[in-house]
Nucleic acid binder design. Structure first.
Length: 515
DNA sequence: GGCAAAATAT
DNA sequence: CATATTTTGC
């Protein structure tokens, strides 16, 4: 059985109840291991020969999450075969003898780990990690469309890779104290994955910053904040990072883009680990995804301008892992943005007239700059909604607040108004900020895989952010090319006039659009 | 809680 | 190398 990330999400008390197939011809050993496992609330099915085990596996009525298989010289061929036939089942090999060639072969054949006997409790305790790993990895391959679990929204690929270290204070309900039992195991490395082991992952004051991608959540409700953890490459145990497989999207299960961004990976792996060695390690970075921001905004709106203080917002948001500081910081930026944006007329440069319907006509600038000349672009209306809520909404009492169709932010880089929309936007007649209300789950750092998926979806519905971003970027960088999305370039006169408004009266030769 | 500096990320 | 975003410190 292939456990999916979603399965894990809904799994109360994970990894309790994890079904373990145990194959060991030594009855004593098997019994011993089994009882240890059962003490940990794993559900064990013991087998003494491959065939029994294999038929149990193929039995529809049974399913296993992970297998522990003993191997020794005389049965190795059978075990290899077993391994080959159970690719979907995370299989841990174990042996009394330490034979490097056998070990190697097992690993080569897909074993997720090789453990030397005897199997201590510590070793056994962590076998769930392989299930989680598998789940995350499996999801990526199958994903055809984004999963939308809460975790999806909050977790990112980095988490999956880097989270081993973050369990510090997860004191509530964690069935297994992972933090106290450093995984003896070597979670299966899939392409490009790194194992991270930040020696000191404690965080300071808050009790909530534990992000656990692997043990996902123990309570279906909890939402984790997407964070980026500092990685210490040197601390990475025997993991050879294979960056070549960037787009190998791993998992999508958990999030929009779990483990897929090759660039990030390589960067991370090469990243100097200065920080890791530093005693005062920086806190993991909260990634304000559109969903998270949306929550934030809703909280702010609900509270009203005067009540909207970090602690209350935090409370309302109810997002696990988020700290007051995080919120405060975001609030700071939020206010800054509004201050910067609102004082401006809001009408002169950004006539709401264009595509606004009663419902979405906000007094502020739309999220994207609008081409003043043409309205025949292919962008859907939803895209013009402002990222920040309009002022009248902002101050509205809870009961009065009507959630507008809120455009989720795409990436943190473009969720605010374009500070200088006039020039670029009007000059080029194309959006400067990519809209995206339809696929908030996609982050800009998305994997190639999600990117592709997104693009596919996008074209079937709305263009996705990334698509737009890309297109817009290209349009800006290569003005000589025809504008995409049905946009037309502004007239020379309008450009000149706009430039003069900006104080540019002379246009240097060579930038007149031809080249 | 809020502001600003420092640290990072892009 | 500069800017933007987020964390830290006060």
């Amino acid at each position: 059985m292939v456990c999916t990330a979603n399965d894990l999400l809904g799994w109360k008390d994970f990894p309790k109840g994890l079904r373990v197939l145990l194959l060991d011809e030594d009855i004593n050993s098997a019994t011993e291991i089994s009882s240890k496992l059962e003490e940990m609330d794993y559900v064990v099915s013991m087998f003494h020969c491959e065939n029994e085990a294999l038929s149990a596996i193929s039995d529809e009525k049974q399913s296993f999450h992970v297998a522990i298989v003993e191997v020794r010289e005389h049965n190795k061929e059978g075990r290899f075969k077993f391994l080959e036939n159970t690719k979907d089942l995370p299989t841990i090999m174990t042996s009394e003898v330490k034979c490097i060639s056998i070990m190697m072969k097992c690993i080569a054949l897909g074993a997720v780990e090789f453990l030397e006997k005897p199997l201590s409790e510590d070793k056994l305790r962590n076998i769930w990690q392989h299930v989680a790993h598998k789940a995350f990895n499996a999801g990526a391959k199958e994903q055809t469309e984004p999963l939308k679990s809460d975790l999806d929204i909050y977790l990112k690929k980095e988490d999956i890779e880097e989270e081993f270290c973050q369990n510090q204070e997860h004191n509530d309900e964690v069935p297994v104290e992972m933090d106290k039992y450093p995984a003896p195991s070597t979670p299966q490395l899939k392409q490009g994955m790194r194992l991270v082991d930040n020696g000191d992952c404690h965080d300071q004051d808050q009790t909530n910053v534990s992000i656990e991608k692997e043990c996902v959540d123990h309570d279906g409700e909890s939402k984790f904040v997407e964070t980026t953890c500092v990685v210490d490459a040197t601390a990475t145990p025997f993991v050879t990072v294979t960056d070549t497989s960037l787009e190998e999207g791993i998992v999508k299960p958990l999030s929009n883009e779990c483990c897929t961004d090759g660039k990030k990976q390589s960067e991370a792996s090469e990243r100097p680990n200065s920080r890791a060695t530093k005693s005062s390690r920086r806190k993991i970075k909260v990634d304000w995804t559109s969903e998270l921001h949306k929550k934030f905004v809703q909280a702010v709106e609900q509270l009203g301008a005067d009540q909207a203080i970090p602690s209350r917002i935090l409370e309302l948001m109810n997002v696990e892992g988020l700290t007051r500081h995080n919120v405060a910081s975001h609030l700071q930026k939020y206010r800054l943005q509004r201050r910067h944006i609102l004082p401006k007329d809001g009408g002169r440069k950004w006539p709401q007239t264009r595509h606004s319907t009663p419902r979405n006509s906000y007094p502020q600038k739309p999220i994207m700059a609008y081409p003043p000349y043409h309205s025949n672009h292919a962008l859907p209306h939803a895209q013009v909604y402002p990222a920040w809520p309009p002022p009248h909404n902002y101050a509205m009492p809870p009961q009065m607040w009507v959630p507008p169709y809120y455009p989720a932010w795409q990436s943190s880089e473009n969720w605010m108004w374009n500070p200088y929309p006039g020039l670029q936007a009007e000059a080029w007649g194309c959006p400067t900020v990519s809209p995206q209300a339809s696929f908030p789950q996609f982050q800009s750092r998305g994997s190639m895989q999600s990117r592709q998926t997104m693009e596919k979806n996008s074209f079937e519905n709305y263009p996705g952010d990334e698509v737009i971003d890309k297109v817009v970027k290209e349009a800006i960088n290569k003005p000589w090319l025809p504008l995409p999305l049905g946009l037309k370039p502004p007239s020379t006169e309008s450009v000149i006039s706009e430039l003069s408004k900006q104080g540019i009266s002379t246009v240097p030769p060579g930038i007149n659009g031809s080249r």
